[in-house]
Design a protein around this nucleic acid. Structure first.
Length: 327
DNA sequence: GGTAGACCTGGACGC
DNA sequence: GCGTCCAGGTCTACC
């Protein structure tokens, strides 16, 4: 467990914390979602009762076996980046001291690479409400739910078996239907091996080349998946980058010209470029809407979508387990 | 290597 | 309530 870890700051650090099946509770300052464990899907609620720098607690909807606990620990560690190298973070703060005082460095992600890839594909060529909608419906339609709870993120094998017409009609994924099924098949068949992508000895360029070959993944998506893999040297440039370049950094020119300027602007941050870029953008969002951990899904969330996520999940039995790397 | 146009959905807008 | 326009990255065809 990192000594400086802050659940509100570090969980509410990337937009995926607002996407199903994740649910951030502003009042309780807790993060909830179903997780797939060896013994079945379980609803999990993460809190940090004693505040920043203290252990996280996981409340689950049933008693966990030791195998379940190990899997839960691994998935939470990935989501919250609890195992991120603290020397690497210190290096980031040395290079860009703007974030040293707040301690910002970790970026929220999914418990699996598969979920990150699907979430990235559902964020392409669509406005944010569309991304919210697609993820909500994917979980509702294809996600396995713990007893009495809402659906979790769909299993890759289940999406691999889905029919494109069904995905399009019920999950509203549009033309992404076949691409999502194909990428799910690649995961399900073991053609995509997350361990290879997550292995620090695999060169960034090799990872990028492999990602951009995936259906539905272009330059933006590949760069975004790379940051989700902990590889921060590339910037996923999109229309938001252009807006940021123009309104915050005062850049001029066509979209393509501004994108080039943004890339050049953050190049000095080298292996940490994405974090410098992202926290600058995040600070802008928070200047408009307040701190991200105060973003109510049903009020701030409605800035993104008219429909709201439903069915608050119920915790039937609490099995508290410390989560993190310290014993 | 660069570019035009299609792909699909949901929100905004005008009537 | 309906029709039209627009935003959003990827992919293919073409130059």
């Amino acid at each position: 467990m990192p000594a400086d870890y802050s659940l509100p700051r570090d969980a509410c650090s990337y937009g995926y914390f607002l996407l199903a099946p994740n649910r951030w509770d502003v009042e309780e300052q807790s993060l909830s979602r179903p997780l797939r464990l060896p013994g079945g899907v379980v609803h999990t609620q993460l809190t940090q009762p004693a505040g920043p720098g203290t252990p996280l607690t996981a409340a689950t909807s049933r008693t966990l076996s030791s195998a379940d606990k190990a899997s839960l620990r691994a998935q939470v560690t990935r989501m919250l980046r609890l195992d991120e190298d603290e020397r690497h973070i210190a290096g980031f703060h040395r290079l860009d001291p703007r974030w040293k005082r707040s301690g910002r460095a970790r970026l929220f992600r999914s418990p699996t690479m598969y979920e990150d890839v699907v979430k990235t594909i559902t964020s392409c060529n669509v406005t944010w409400p569309g991304t919210v909608q697609m993820n909500r419906r994917l979980c509702e339609v294809l996600g396995e739910a713990p007893p009495g709870g809402a659906g979790g993120f769909p299993d890759q094998a289940r999406v691999a078996r889905a029919r494109p017409e069904m995905l399009r009609a019920r999950c509203r994924v549009g033309y992404r239907d076949a691409r999502l099924i194909e990428v799910s098949r690649l995961f399900a068949r073991g053609v995509i091996r997350p361990a290879w992508f997550e292995d620090p000895s695999t060169p960034d360029d090799d990872v990028y080349d492999a990602l951009i070959d995936l259906p539905g993944v272009g330059p933006y998506a590949a760069s975004n998946i790379m940051q989700l893999l902990g590889r921060y040297s590339r910037l996923p440039l999109d229309t938001e980058s252009v807006r940021h370049g123009r309104t915050v950094l005062g850049m001029k020119g066509s979209s393509a010209q501004v994108m080039r300027q943004v890339r050049t602007h953050f190049a000095p941050f080298g292996a940490h470029a994405f974090r410098s870029y992202w926290f600058e953008m995040w600070r802008f969002y928070e200047s408009k809407h307040g701190k991200a951990w105060t973003w109510e899904r049903d009020s701030t969330g409605k800035l993104f979508t008219a429909a709201h996520l439903n069915a608050p999940s119920r915790i039937r039995r609490v099995d508290a387990a410390s989560v993190g790397h310290s014993p």
